[in-house]
Amino acid sequence: MSVTSGPASRRLYWPAQMQRNRGVRGLFVVVALFVALYAYLFPGLLTVGGVSKFAQSWFPLALVSMSQALLMLTGGISLSIGATVSLGAVIAATTMTGPLGVVGGLAVVMIAGLAIGAITGVIVVRLRLPAIVVTLAASFIIGGAALLILPRPGGAIPTWFSDLLAGNTPAALILLIVTALLWKVYLATPLGLSLYAAGENPVGAYRGGVPVDIARIAAYAISGLLAVGAGLFVAAQTGSGDPVIGTAFTLNSIAAAVLGGVGFLGGRGTMRGAIAGSLLLSVMINVMFFLGFPPVAQYVAQGLIIIGAVALPEITGRRGPR
């Protein structure tokens, strides 16, 4: 990256990144252990094909977790991520085989995501309405729009495009890496880095010249983009659109972000943590499936692990009035 060229910046940029890693080191170890367990159970994972397949099952969750974590860093939250995923999926499934073609469809999906996010952001930030309620109402509007576009599962994604994204290729893994790198670039811009300040101490940041409102609205817009991206990928995976396919992603995105150490009050956590959290959740589901856990046990274990992961640091590091 161009930002890291000079010797002085090498002394600052990378060390600052390393120091920010400390909070998630424990999580990385846990994730590594789970991945190792998975690889041990399923040696096929360690081939190009195995990694590609796994990355495909992980990718949408990783995107929505980033989408959610981004908002949580600014002190917000979204309950409309699932609906936005669905909308992305149905737009993709109805436009790509039409006159717009794949490129046109891609553009429509991305514009829709950015617009939805930006509008939500403006309502939350400018009109000072609580994010949780606004996104709750938005989930109905966005979900309704998805139903309008495609009342029942259907539509189609061109086969070649499906194969390219979700076939026997490492496209998902590559896209995930690209997304993560783009996030790094965004964080290296003044607006991107302001996210943390806008989330943790909005008043102080505003006084210090940070464009708090713009940073938060931008976060909502990017969050919308990531969510429709996940929808697009899910549509490519199934080869068609489904207006309610995203529903489960709302709660899973919160779970992954929290597993990844992102706090609810803003300014706490990192994107790499959220991605690791989504990886942990994906691997957990895969491992339990592999071990032949009945779905019941999977749900139960998932619930327990999430609570445990959140409660443990609280129990060990407790202080403050009772």
Binding site: A16, P190, L193, Y196, G209, R268
Partner: peptide, 30 residues
């Protein structure tokens, strides 16, 4: 008015970052 997760330098420059190509110029900032 500091942000605890950001580094000392990133806090000092917050709201007035030196830029290059739209990105924070970490060299000058340092």
């Amino acid at each position: 008015s500091l942000t605890s997760q950001l580094s000392i330098a990133e806090n000092i420059g917050l709201g007035a970052y030196p830029r290059r190509l739209g990105l924070i110029d970490y060299g000058t900032l340092a």
